[in-house]
């Protein structure tokens, strides 16, 4: 990337670029690789659905979907090149979401405990 006078200068007070964010431009070639990866894994997830893997079918489908989502988030949505502030925020958001799911599920799972 081209040199940036804002990020290159010595800036002890963190005034010109407090997040130390380097502006990164993702190339069409990188986007193309991501695009191909997503298409290939779409094919894999359809193929895997017709193989009887017992209880592993939904697990594998969710793993593939999560992998694709992470690829989209990191590259199409540029999170890989974002500042720590944004990475932490996104991580905290997903973590909170998982906490909500887990707490609610634990309620439903344990409601009838001892009744059967």
């Amino acid at each position: 990337m081209a040199s940036n006078p804002h990020t290159d200068v010595h800036d002890p007070a963190n005034i010109t670029n407090p997040e130390h964010a380097e502006h990164h431009i993702v190339t069409p070639f990188q986007y193309g690789l991501v695009f191909l990866t997503l298409l290939v894994f779409t094919g894999i997830t359809v193929g895997a659905a017709y193989v009887n893997l017992g209880p592993m079918n939904p697990v594998i489908a969710l793993l593939i979907a999560s992998f694709k989502a992470v690829v989209v988030i990191l590259f199409f949505m540029h999170v890989r090149w974002q500042s720590r502030l944004i990475k932490m925020t996104i991580g905290a958001g997903f973590f909170t979401f998982l906490v909500l799911i887990t707490m609610t599920l634990s309620d439903y799972i344990s409601r009838a405990w001892g009744l059967w």
């Binding site: 779409t42 659905a49 079918n57 489908a61």
Partner: peptide, 11 residues
């Protein structure tokens, strides 16, 4: 897509 369409196809 997988959750609605796919995960019971093996049945």
């Amino acid at each position: 897509f997988p959750l609605l369409y796919l995960i019971n196809r093996h049945l």
